[in-house]
Amino acid sequence: MMKKNIDYYMGLNYPVAIERISEEDGGGFFASIPLLPGCMSDGGTLEEAYDNIEDAKKEWLMSMLERKMNIPEPADQEEFSGKFLVRLPKSLHRTLAQISKREGVSLNQYVASALAYSAGQKA
């Protein structure tokens, strides 16, 4: 099993939120990592704000490791079973079952294909 040390956590893809700071508040950019509460920084440019949040992330993670506290991980690191339960109206269930029968595939296969197609259209 991989040891979850600073290198492990720094290698994870934590989403970074960057917002422009208004000129009346000093200008520049505010950066934070929403998954790591209190992990924030700023910078005069986007690049500086990003570099600074990377430094802040390292300090935040090292502090949590030293205190043996739980560190959240980004969703792409989670394991997914590939199963979920969906409740839907009977009329939609009937329509989907009819279409899958007409296509000659199982209802599960048809719904998985329809979801994959729809998700691909949004990406």
Rank of each mutant, 00 (worst) to 15 (best):
L107S: 03
M1Q: 04
R94T: 14
M10G: 07
A112W: 05
L65R: 01
G120Y: 04
W60K: 02
P34W: 13
E48C: 04
N5F: 05
E19L: 09
P89G: 11
L35Y: 13
S41R: 04
L88M: 09
G26E: 00
L92F: 13
G27N: 06
G28E: 01
P34R: 13
A97K: 07
K90H: 15
Y50R: 00
L96C: 00
K57W: 00
T95D: 12
G38I: 11
M10R: 07
Q77F: 11
V105S: 12
D25F: 03
M69H: 07
F80V: 02
G104I: 04
R20D: 14
A49R: 01
Q121V: 14
M1E: 12
V16L: 07
Y8R: 03
K4N: 02
M2D: 12
K4I: 05
Y8N: 01
G26A: 00
G82W: 00
P15Y: 05
D76K: 02
P89V: 03
E48V: 07
D51A: 10
E78V: 13
K122M: 15
T45L: 04
L96T: 06
I71L: 01
M62S: 12
K4S: 02
Y110C: 09
K58N: 06
A112S: 02
E19C: 02
I71G: 03
M69W: 02
R94W: 05
Q77K: 11
L92N: 12
L92S: 12
V111D: 01
I53P: 03
K90A: 15
P37V: 13
M40S: 11
R67D: 14
E24L: 03
G104N: 02
I6Q: 04
Y117K: 13
M62C: 11
K122W: 12
G26K: 05
G11V: 02
Y50L: 12
A56Y: 07
I33P: 10
N13S: 12
M69A: 09
V16G: 09
L88V: 04
E24N: 07
R20V: 15
L35D: 15
C39Y: 05
L12W: 05
V86H: 08
F80T: 03
K58V: 06
K4V: 01
I99Q: 00
A17K: 09
V105C: 15
N13K: 14
D42M: 07
W60Q: 02
L61M: 08
A123N: 05
A17W: 13
M1I: 13
I18T: 13
S91V: 15
K58F: 08
V16K: 09
A123Q: 07
E47Q: 10
L92K: 12
Y9P: 01
A114P: 06
V86I: 14
G27K: 00
S91D: 15
Y117E: 15
M62I: 14
G38D: 11
K58T: 07
N70F: 09
E54M: 14
P89Y: 03
I71F: 08
N5Y: 04
A116G: 01
F29P: 08
Q121F: 11
A119S: 03
M69K: 08
S81V: 09
E66P: 08
S91K: 14
Q121R: 15
E47H: 06
S41D: 01
E103Q: 13
A17I: 09
